[in-house]
C-alpha cells in the first residue's frame, strides 16, 4: 500500500457506485425471478350444490347449507428463490409504488405520506434544536450548569424513541403534539451533546484573542463563540436530522393514517411487503436529500471550512 488512503477520482467513484447499485438490483432480480417450476398441491373448495339442513348452534334457527367438498388441485406454479410476500419482483414492487404514488382516491397517496412525515419530523427537529443549541452552549460556558444537567442527559441519551411512546400517549394523547414529542425526545439529547462538544472544542486562544482585542463579554458569545462553534454544531445537526428520521415509525405508530411510518406499520399488518419497501425507500431518499441540502446550507453558512489551503510562501 504505497499510498493510503488511496483515491480514484470522483468520476470513477460515481461509476463504481452505479455499478454497486446495478449489482444489488441484479441480485434482487435473480432472487425473485421465477426460474423454477413448482408443483404444489392444495385443496380447493368444490361447490356441488348438495344442500342440507342444519340447526344454528347459537340461535337455533334452521339453515340451508351446502355440504363442502374439496378436491386436490395440482398447481403448476412458477416460483423463485425468494417469493412474495418475503420479496416481490422489482417490476411488481415498482408497479405497487407507482399505484401508491398516483392513487387519487380517499386513501392517501405517497406524496401525502411523505409530506406529513416530513412536516412532523422537521418540526420536531427544529423545536428540539432550538432548545438544545442554546442549552448546549450554556452548558459549555457554565461548568456548574453542565454538571447539574449531565446526569439527566446521561439518563435520556440511550433511550430509543419507541420507549417514549407509552408515556407520550398518556400525557399528550394521540394527536400531532404526541408525534412531535416523540421526535423531540428522540433527537434532543443527541443535539445537546453535539452542541456541547462543539462549544467545548472552541480554541480558548480565540476567546483570549478576542478579549485582548477589546470584545466585551456580551459580544463574546455572538461574535466569537458562536461562529467558532458553528461548523461543529452544523455537522452534528446533520447527524441529528438522520436520527430524527429514525423516530418516524415510533412517532406514527398511533393516531394517524397518513405518514411513512404509518404506511410501513399498516402494511406489515396486511402483509403488504411492497408497500413496506416503498416506505423504506422513501425514508432513505428523503434523508439523503436532506443531507445534500444540509451540505449546501453548510457551504453557505461556514464557507471557510470548504476552501482549500493555497499555502503561499512566507
Amino acid at each position: 500500500m504505497t499510498a493510503f488512503p488511496a483515491s480514484i477520482g470522483r468520476r470513477r467513484e460515481l461509476g463504481y457506485g452505479a455499478a454497486g447499485i446495478a449489482l444489488v438490483t441484479a441480485v434482487w432480480f435473480i432472487l425473485t425471478y421465477p426460474f423454477f417450476v413448482e408443483v404444489t398441491e392444495h385443496r380447493t373448495y368444490v361447490s356441488t350444490g348438495e344442500m342440507h339442513t342444519v340447526r344454528d348452534p347459537v340461535t337455533g334457527e334452521i339453515l340451508k347449507i351446502e355440504r363442502p367438498y374439496y378436491s386436490n388441485v395440482r398447481e403448476v406454479r412458477r416460483s423463485a428463490l425468494v417469493n412474495p410476500p418475503a420479496l416481490d419482483t422489482p417490476e411488481n414492487t415498482l408497479r405497487d409504488a407507482w399505484e401508491l404514488l398516483t392513487t387519487r382516491g380517499p386513501n392517501p397517496n405517497l406524496l401525502e405520506h411523505i409530506a406529513y412525515s416530513c412536516l412532523r419530523i422537521l418540526l420536531g427537529f427544529v423545536i428540539s434544536c432550538s432548545i438544545a443549541i442554546p442549552l448546549g452552549v450554556a452548558m459549555g460556558l457554565f461548568p456548574r450548569l453542565r454538571a447539574t444537567i449531565a446526569p439527566v442527559v446521561s439518563f435520556l441519551r440511550p433511550l430509543p424513541s419507541i420507549s417514549w411512546v407509552p408515556l407520550a400517549m398518556i400525557w399528550l394523547g394521540a394527536g400531532e403534539l404526541q408525534k412531535l414529542a416523540i421526535v423531540f425526545m428522540g433527537s434532543f439529547s443527541a443535539a445537546l451533546i453535539y452542541t456541547l462538544e462543539a462549544t467545548l472544542k472552541v480554541d480558548p486562544n480565540l476567546i483570549r484573542a478576542a478579549l485582548n482585542l477589546g470584545v466585551g463579554p456580551q459580544d463574546l458569545l455572538i461574535r466569537v463563540l458562536l461562529p467558532a462553534a458553528l461548523p461543529n454544531i452544523l455537522s452534528g445537526l446533520k447527524v441529528v436530522i438522520a436520527i430524527a428520521w429514525t423516530c418516524v415509525i415510533s412517532a406514527e405508530i398511533v393516531g394517524t393514517q397518513v405518514g411513512l411510518g404509518s404506511l410501513i406499520w399498516t402494511s406489515k399488518e396486511t402483509s403488504n411487503t411492497a408497500a413496506v419497501l416503498v416506505g423504506m425507500t422513501c425514508i432513505s431518499s428523503v434523508v439523503l436529500l436532506l443531507d445534500a441540502l444540509f451540505e449546501r446550507l453548510e457551504r453557505r453558512l461556514v464557507p471557510w471550512m470548504f476552501v482549500g489551503a493555497q499555502k503561499e510562501d512566507a
Partner: peptide, 14 residues
C-alpha cells in the same frame, strides 16, 4: 361453538 356446530358455522349462511 364446538365441533358439532362447525358445520353450520362454516357455510354461506354464516
Amino acid at each position: 361453538i364446538g365441533w358439532n356446530g362447525q358445520r353450520a358455522m362454516l357455510s354461506n349462511a354464516r
